[in-house]
Structures are given as structure tokens and as C-alpha cells.
Measured scan of single mutants.
Amino acid sequence: MAAAAAAGAGPEMVRGQVFDVGPRYTNLSYIGEGAYGMVCSAYDNVNKVRVAIKKISPFEHQTYCQRTLREIKILLRFRHENIIGINDIIRAPTIEQMKDVYIVQDLMETDLYKLLKTQHLSNDHICYFLYQILRGLKYIHSANVLHRDLKPSNLLLNTTCDLKICDFGLARVADPDHDHTGFLTEYVATRWYRAPEIMLNSKGYTKSIDIWSVGCILAEMLSNRPIFPGKHYLDQLNHILGILGSPSQEDLNCIINLKARNYLLSLPHKNKVPWNRLFPNADSKALDLLDKMLTFNPHKRIEVEQALAHPYLEQYYDPSDEPIAEAPFKFDMELDDLPKEKLKELIFEETARFQPGYRS
């Protein structure tokens, strides 16, 4: 834990890192770190609560700039109880001085990944967590956004079992017609939660990839272990087919990539493993919904509104309290091709509203 900075004593240090967030945020305490930044909790002297502050230093890398800009653009436009918001952003007053960006968010005690390492969940908890994931996802999908990296560590939890989806750095506007060349190379989302079509096709992607990830998360809540822990690309596919069985001819016809289709045709026939054999203690309604989410063919996979209306979630289902976005989200430009200098300018502009004396 960093010592509390005395008023006016300059930035606090946390594990050798400068955290320049005073005077409003003090009493910093280390939480963890990701690929390009550290997260601390801090005391907000204005709202009198502890908050989470993520320090991001992305400006050396085009990919990190892209992810940072995506996350900020999306989260500043989203407003939903099951999606983490941005409360404040701290950065230098000029673009030349801006080396880091500090993002202030609600402090959540833990995440689903940490929880599943230590606790076996009751059916009631599984049901409530799944409902909140789908409630947040309904809003995301209504904005025409794909999260693309749903996994237990991106689901934040607090002691009252509130759940918030975080990390929109890989999110995209849904565009089933656009052929994202190089899709697989830039697709760094965790393999275990990846839909089979991501490994088999490169053309376009749809909201059904997020539903697949939610199915993987439900299976993990039922058993405290990942359902498809593939060691590499082909191993991942083999794990999936080992449980779902061989795809039907109709399902194979959806695979545009001939090499991928021929690979699947070359494999020995596998039978589907019954879900109640894998999860003998699970609620039968939970397994019915799991089956509809972990469907090989993305066109037959359940959609988020149908999933919310499934009998497993009937005690929570309330369409009048499951809000959607006001308007579909649009990125003005494809960020993939922009140089990091341009992305830095866009991050600077996007964060201006939090600067003292800002006038829109």
C-alpha cells in the first residue's frame, strides 16, 4: 500500500510507478496490472468513496492506442447498470505532455475469474450472474457493438453480487458484411471463450460470437473449470467437437473457408456428449439454455433477447427493466489503419471533457 500523499506533496508512487492523480484522489492501494497499465484503488475526496484507477501508458504502440481509444469512446457513450462506466479521466493539459491516461471507475471487490478459483456457486448465484451478463449484453448488442472478449476476468463483482462487464478494448461495431482481413492475426481474445466460426472463417462476425462466450462462462460457473481449455488453435476446435459432436452437413455448409471445411470433413465422426453427463448436478433449465448458447452453427445460436426470456431466468426476466441503447454506435473511421500519432490526438480530444474549465 502506498503511503497517503500529504496535501501538495506531488504524485504518489505505487510499486515504483508514478500515479499522478492528486489532489482529488489519494490513499492509493495496488490492485493489479494488465498488459499496459496498473490498477489501484484510491480515495475520492470529492465523492467520499474509494474508486478504481487504471493507469494506461499506450502511446508507444499502435495496438494499445487503438484499444484505449475504443474503450474510452464506447464506455463514455454507454450507460447501463451492468456495464462499468467511466467516472473521470485524468491526463496532462497538453498533448505533448500526455504520456499516461488515468481512467477512474467504480471500485468492484472482485471478478468472476477470482471468485470461481475459490468458491463453488449455488444455482441461485449462477442464475443471477447469468441474468446480469445477458442484461448488459442486450444493451451492448442493441448499440450494434460486439464485445468480443467476454470471459470471467472481464466480469466485475461486488459483495452485493452486482455484476458489471468491463474491458471493451477489443470491441467492434457489428459488421457481418465487412471482410476484416487479418482478423485472426489481430484477434487476441482469450482462445477458450472463442466461437468456432472465428477459427473457421475470417469473413465478418456477428453478435452470436458473444453468446458463445457467455455459454462458455455459464459452463464454467457450473463446474469451476473452463469447458474448452484448448492449448492452441486446432486443439481448441477438437475440444469443442469432442463435446458438441461432429457438425451436420448443414452446419458445414455455413463454413465459407474450404480449407477449414475440408479439415472438419477429414475428422472421424464424434457423438455429442449429453450435458447432464458433463454437469450431473446442474439445473435442467440451465443445461437447456447452455445447449442453445453453445450451438456450433452461429445462425442457430440463441440471441440475447431470447436467452433473457428463457425459463431458467424467469424469476428475473423483465423486458421493461432491460434497457437498450438510445442509438446504434458508430465509429467515424476504422481505427485499425491509423498511425499511433493520430490515435493519440483522438484520445486527447475524447478525454477533453474531463479537463478543468472544459467548454463543449
Rank of each mutant, 00 (worst) to 15 (best):
E96T: 01
M293K: 15
D291K: 11
V273R: 01
E96D: 12
N45D: 07
R194G: 13
K292H: 06
I198K: 08
L278H: 03
R67S: 15
I217F: 15
L150F: 09
L218M: 15
F183A: 05
P311L: 12
C166H: 05
N262F: 02
F183T: 07
P93G: 03
D20A: 11
F354D: 14
E322D: 10
G182N: 10
I72H: 01
G22C: 11
E314G: 01
M293H: 08
K203M: 12
H125E: 12
Y358N: 11
L308C: 02
L234M: 15
R15G: 13
S57G: 07
Y128N: 14
T159Q: 14
K330V: 02
E60R: 11
Y205F: 14
D175A: 15
K340R: 14
I324D: 03
L112Q: 15
A174S: 15
H120R: 12
D337N: 15
G8N: 06
P247K: 04
Y102H: 07
Y358L: 13
L335P: 07
M333G: 06
A3C: 12
G242T: 01
L265A: 06
L121E: 10
I324A: 02
Y263D: 01
A143L: 11
C161S: 15
L290N: 07
D177F: 07
L343H: 11
R15W: 15
Q315D: 09
L252Q: 14
P152L: 10
L121R: 03
E60L: 11
A282D: 14
I126Y: 06
N27Q: 04
Q306A: 04
D111A: 15
N45W: 04
E322R: 03
A2W: 00
G357M: 13
P311W: 00
W212P: 11
N253L: 13
T94W: 07
L258W: 06
P176G: 05
H141E: 11
V49R: 12
K99A: 11
L264F: 03
L184R: 05
R91D: 01
N253T: 07
K138Y: 08
I72Y: 00
R91L: 14
R301D: 04
T185K: 10
N297R: 11
L343A: 13
Y25T: 01
N27K: 14
G16W: 00
P274K: 06
M108G: 04
C166W: 01
G85Y: 03
T160G: 10
L107V: 05
D106I: 00
K117W: 07
H239A: 11
K342N: 15
L237M: 10
K259D: 02
A6Y: 00
G242W: 00
H120P: 09
I211A: 13
R148M: 13
L338Q: 15
G10P: 05
S223R: 14
D291T: 02
D283R: 03
T160Y: 07
H178F: 11
A195T: 10
T110W: 11
E305P: 01
Q17N: 07
E322F: 02
Y30I: 03
I83A: 00
